[in-house]
Design a protein around this nucleic acid. Structure first.
Length: 471
RNA sequence: GGCGGUAUAGCCAAGUGGUAAGGCAGAGGUCUGCAAAACCUUUAUCGUCGGUUCGAAUCCGAUUACCGCCUCCA
């Protein structure tokens, strides 16, 4: 039985979707004014891994993740780049899709954009005003936070103890217009030459929080299963989403709140963020780091734990991944000389690994214990592949299971069986002949030569194998 | 000031009452013409102090350090 840690209750709870075999989930996506950094990538990877595990468990997952394509940051950046806000958004949405594809993140079922839902946003806000939860001031519309009694429940905050301005990000002019400093903007009146839409309150644009309430309830219903995002969104973003949505619908907004931990950098493990300027974009890093290694690195840390982005940890991930790749190769190589049939005892051991894997992952997606089972499976495969006599079906079962489990981590390994290079194949053959005539000097020479070309040769009881050097 | 999180071997990291999983790196070994790969063996008393208990990394209290949020942020 799958258990998930629900931020709302601060406890692991048995997971039960509203509709059997279907999960509706919404994950807060990026503001598209720049390339995504490793921290954004982590969030995307974390929830992609969760999604893949849910699918492995047999659920159909309706995965919605938004693009915030209009807000202050968008407007400022567009001005700086001398492009329109829409052009800026298009550019970085495209970049997002390329970067996440490199990390083998499955495309969302739907990627709604704030600017494509303006009429619905306006209707939603009007509804809140009619219900007395919002008010207009000189072209702006604010949410009357204190009127929503459960406010603060998700993040454990008490309105009266919230220290206004503690984060030093409040704008005084805006605060002055509000009935209460804790109120937040649903609609912002446009300044001259800013992108804007017509509304009952004049030209303007939506506030940040409202788009998620509108698009999630529209696409997934008033109540849906999972809402995810980075833990920095707990307060105020998700708190505000709850306030908006529940005030409007009168129904529970979300059943399970999941929040991922940060990527940290440096000796003091500081949060990676665009405002601190200590970020590395995915776009940049995959020029030098194998995207598959980056994916493996990010997906093998449990989503709630911080990820320490260091060279050492990245290399660790690279070595571990290479080890798994070797196991796939070792097992694959035996397919050619395997006997028909299967080995029941080994099959049973593989099934046990799968069961242990599921147990681990059912515990709030405990990928560390999950990946341990993958290593165990690789070990089983390596041991089995060294047997003098192996059975075809068992080899295939091991390979199929390995790829099935690795796929949850977003890793697809293919055994390399074709070298497609006549010169290299000729050299390999020449070395085999040399070894047979005990001309070890020549055979070592060839091995060294191929090694310089990135091909490692291994002599086994079943003959000589080759593999490519991993980066 | 309020709220939350983390602290386990050189590194990463499991483990919520019974004498510390796993991976990487290191050491030794098996296999090999030599290698490579693989496999086997090996390396900790769990931030500090106190308490509960027959027994605690695991429960309670205190304390220290670090991190995050408190209307930019995944």
């Amino acid at each position: 039985m799958l258990q998930v840690f629900n931020t709302m209750t601060r406890e692991k709870e048995p997971f039960k979707s509203m509709t059997p075999n279907l999960v509706n989930m919404y994950v807060c996506g990026p503001t598209v004014y720049n390339y995504i950094h490793i921290g954004n990538g982590r969030s995307a990877v974390a929830f992609d891994t969760i999604r893949r595990y849910l699918e492995y468990k047999g659920y159909t997952v309706n995965y919605v993740s938004n693009f915030t394509d209009v807000d202050d940051k968008m407007i400022n950046q567009a001005k700086k780049d001398h492009v329109t806000v829409m052009e800026l958004g298009n550019k970085y949405i495209q970049a997002f899709k390329e970067d996440t594809a490199a990390l083998n993140i499955k495309p969302a079922t739907t990627n709604p954009r704030a600017t494509e839902h303006i009429p619905e946003i306006i209707t939603f806000i009007q509804d809140l005003i009619e219900k007395g939860y919002a008010y207009e001031v000189e072209g702006d519309v604010y949410y009357r936070t204190r009127k929503f009694k459960p406010y603060g429940e998700l993040s454990g905050q008490n309105i009266d103890e919230l220290e206004a301005g503690a984060s030093q990000h409040t704008a005084d002019e805006e605060t002055a217009r509000k009935e209460d400093p804790i109120d937040f903007a649903l609609w912002k009146g446009a300044k001259a030459d800013e992108i804007s839409w017509e509304s009952p309150w004049g030209q303007g644009r939506p506030g940040w929080h409202i788009e998620c309430s509108v698009m999630s309830t529209e696409l997934l219903g008033n109540t849906f299963d999972i809402h995810g995002g980075g833990e920095d969104l707990e307060f105020p973003h998700h708190e505000n989403e709850i306030a908006q949505s529940e005030a409007k619908t009168g129904q529970k907004f979300v059943n399970y709140w999941l929040h991922n931990g940060f990527v940290t950098v440096g000796d003091d493990n500081e949060k990676m963020s665009k405002s601190l300027g200590n970020f590395v974009t995915v776009h940049e890093i995959i020029k030098t780091v194998d995207p598959q290694v980056l994916r493996f690195f990010l997906s093998t840390t449990q989503y709630r734990r911080p990820v320490q982005y260091t060279q050492d940890n990245l290399e660790d991930a690279s070595r571990n991944l290479a080890k798994l790749k070797t196991a796939v190769n070792n097992v694959s190589y035996r397919l050619s000389d395997a006997e028909t049939g299967s080995d029941p005892k080994t099959d049973q051991e593989v099934r046990q690994v799968m069961a242990d894997f599921t147990d681990a992952m059912d515990d709030d997606f405990n990928v560390q214990n999950g990946i341990t089972q993958v290593y165990e499976l690789a070990r089983l495969g390596n041991i089995y592949a060294e047997r003098p006599v192996v059975f075809y079906d068992t080899l295939q079962f091991i390979l199929k299971t390995l790829s099935q489990l690795l796929l949850i981590f977003g890793i697809e390994l293919k055994a390399e069986t074709e070298i497609n290079d006549d010169t290299i194949e000729a050299l390999i053959q020449e070395r085999i002949d040399a070894r047979q005539s005990r001309n070890y000097e020549r055979s070592d020479e060839i091995r060294e030569q191929l090694k310089n070309q990135g091909i490692i040769l291994e002599d086994t009881p079943q003959g000589t194998r080759w593999r490519r050097v991993t980066k």
